[in-house]
């Protein structure tokens, strides 16, 4: 059995045990978390829109995504979207124009937002849609990734992702192109 062979070889060859280091938090160097988040996410191709309430989000979507197939898991926006998609074959989401999902929280240092399967509805949703909108409460921005994992703790999820901007590539001569295989655009709504 390779399993036993590998484990035996590791046991034989591993060095003397050294302790795990303390993981420091390194504090918060950002005066304004929302501004730091906005500034980072916009430099990596995302858009950040500050909104007071759901009505503003609704208005934004109505202006920018006319005629698109919209899906969401957010109760407040359910009337704008189809509601029969949650149980359907994920391949059928191929024509989704916009997925609007809730992010649990955002990270100021890198412009990412944490979204788990519960908010995604279907795992494919934030990836297969032409555009992605994530809604995060402005009070839910943490400074750094250490804070992010402290926040996640030992949460039980089947799948979760930090998402930072639209999908992108620079594989052709280091020229940045938005819209590789996932969404071509991404907007983060920071809601009061």
């Amino acid at each position: 059995m390779s399993r036993e062979k590998i484990l035996a070889a590791v046991a034989k060859n591993k060095p003397t045990s050294t302790p795990l280091p303390q993981i420091q938090n390194f504090g918060n160097q950002y005066a304004d978390l929302a501004e730091q988040f906005r500034s980072v996410l916009t430099t990596i191709g995302g858009e950040v829109v500050r909104v007071k309430d759901w009505e503003e989000i609704r208005a934004y979507i109505q202006t920018h995504f006319v005629g698109f197939r919209i899906i969401t898991t957010i109760g407040e926006l359910s009337d704008m979207a189809q509601n029969s998609w949650l149980q359907s074959d994920p391949h059928s989401l191929n024509n989704v124009g916009l997925a609007v999902l809730q992010g649990q929280f955002a990270v100021a240092e890198n412009g990412s937002m944490w979204v788990t399967e519960a908010e995604m509805g279907q795992r494919a949703a934030p990836f297969i849609a032409e555009s992605l909108a994530l809604v995060v409460k402005i009070s839910e921005i943490v400074p750094k990734m250490h804070d992010a994992y402290a926040r996640i703790g030992s949460a039980d999820y089947g799948f979760g992702a930090f998402i930072a901007g639209p999908s992108k590539t620079a594989d052709i001569e280091q020229s940045l192109v938005l819209g590789a295989h996932g969404p071509k655009s991404m907007v983060a709504f920071l809601i009061d």
Binding site: N110, G111, K144, Y149, G160, F162, I163, A164
Partner: peptide
């Protein structure tokens, strides 16, 4: 919790991005 350390280093070292667009946790 160690992911917090590595995800801060990985993309910055690789391409200078603050983080990759997707850091997907498959559980």
């Amino acid at each position: 919790v160690h992911l917090g350390v590595f995800l801060r280093l990985l993309a910055r070292s690789a391409t200078g991005q603050p983080i990759t667009t997707y850091s997907s946790h498959f559980a």
